[in-house]
C-alpha cells in the first residue's frame, strides 16, 4: 500500500478511536485493567472483578493463617505483615471496586485528604496517650479526689481544696493534712477522712455509705474477715500488711468474695501516694471498726 505518512497517521488515529469506541462496550483486558492506562469509559467486568475478589479472599485467608500458630497470636512479629496485607486489600478495593483508578484525579485528592487527616488524628491520639502517658498520671494521681455517690450534703462533700492550695505531692508530710480541710464530713474519724481523701482508698474500695469503688475488694466487715484470712495473723496485722504490702496476699473467691482481685494492681495504682506511719495507723484503726 502506498499511503503517505500523513494519511497513515490519520488512519491510525481513526483506528485508535474506533478501537476505543469498541472497547467502551467491552471490558478492558486483565493486565491493562489492573496495571495499565484505561481510556475513559472502559470498565471491568466479571473477569476482572472476579479475579480481584479471589485475590482479596486469598489475602484474607493468608492473614488468618498467619495468626493460627499460637506462638504468633498477639506477638509483635505479625503486626507488620498483617498491616501490609490489609493496606493492599484496602487500596485494591478503593482503586478497582470503587474504581478510583479510573476517576477524575480530584476524587483521589479528596479521598486521600480525608484518609490522611484521619491517619494523622489517629496517630496523634495514640502517640499522645500511648507514649507520653506517664507524665500526666504522675501529676494527677496524688491529686485525684474520688467520686462519691449518695452523699447527703452534696455541697459539703464536693467542696475541696483548689489545686493551688494543694501542697506539692512529693512531700509526704504535707500530703496527709491537705485533703481533710474540705472533704471531712462532720463526725468522720481521721482514718475515714484519709480513706475518702488523700489516701484515695475510696476510688477502688467499697464501704456502705462511704465509698463505692469497684476495682478492689469491698471492705464492709473487713475487721471480722481479716482475722480469718491468714492463719497466725490478727485482724490488725492483716489489715496493716494489706495496706503497706498489698501484694503479700491478694483476696479472692477463696475468701468468699465474688471475684478474684488482681495481683499488683493496688501497688501500681497507689504508686504516687505516700502514707506516713500515722496515716497507716489511722486507716487500720478506722478499718478495724468495720465489723
Amino acid at each position: 500500500m502506498s499511503t503517505n505518512p500523513g494519511q497513515e497517521a490519520a488512519m491510525a488515529h481513526d483506528e485508535h478511536a474506533a478501537h476505543e469506541e469498541h472497547a467502551a462496550h467491552e471490558d478492558a483486558g486483565i493486565s491493562r485493567f489492573f496495571f495499565g492506562h484505561v481510556p475513559e469509559g472502559v470498565h471491568g467486568g466479571l473477569k476482572q472483578y472476579g479475579l480481584l475478589a479471589i485475590f482479596l479472599a486469598i489475602i484474607t485467608l493468608i492473614e488468618f493463617l498467619i495468626i493460627v500458630p499460637e506462638g504468633l497470636q498477639g506477638s509483635g512479629v505479625v503486626i507488620a505483615p498483617l498491616v501490609i496485607l490489609s493496606v493492599i486489600k484496602f487500596f485494591c478495593v478503593v482503586a478497582f471496586f470503587m474504581h478510583l483508578k479510573f476517576e477524575h484525579e480530584l476524587l483521589w485528592q479528596i479521598f486521600v485528604a480525608g484518609l490522611a487527616l484521619g491517619l494523622v488524628v489517629a496517630l496523634s491520639l495514640v502517640l499522645l496517650f500511648g507514649v507520653f502517658r506517664p507524665t500526666p498520671r504522675a501529676f494527677s494521681e496524688p491529686r485525684q479526689v474520688p467520686f462519691e455517690h449518695h452523699v447527703e450534703d452534696h455541697h459539703e462533700a464536693v467542696a475541696r481544696p483548689l489545686p493551688d492550695e494543694l501542697p506539692p505531692p512529693a512531700d509526704p508530710a504535707d500530703l496527709a493534712p491537705a485533703a481533710p480541710a474540705g472533704a471531712t464530713a462532720a463526725g468522720a474519724s481521721p482514718g475515714q477522712t484519709l480513706f475518702v481523701g488523700t489516701a484515695a482508698c475510696a476510688s477502688c474500695h467499697t464501704i456502705q455509705g462511704v465509698a463505692q469503688g469497684v476495682l478492689g475488694p469491698p471492705l464492709d466487715g473487713i475487721a471480722s474477715a481479716a482475722a480469718n484470712r491468714i492463719s497466725g495473723y490478727s485482724a490488725e496485722e492483716y489489715i496493716r500488711e494489706s495496706i503497706v504490702e498489698p501484694d503479700a496476699y491478694t483476696a479472692g473467691t477463696a475468701d468468699g468474695l465474688s471475684q478474684d482481685y488482681q495481683q499488683g494492681l493496688m501497688s501500681a495504682t497507689m504508686a504516687g501516694i505516700v502514707l506516713s506511719d500515722e496515716d497507716v495507723e489511722a486507716l487500720v484503726e478506722y478499718l478495724l471498726q468495720l465489723r
Binding site: 484518609l115 484521619g118 491517619l119 489517629a122
Partner: peptide, 16 residues
Amino acid sequence: GSDCLFFGSLIATYMV
C-alpha cells in the same frame, strides 16, 4: 473522606 476521620477517631480511641 470525612467518614475516614470519623472512623479514624474511633479506631484511635480503641488503640489508645
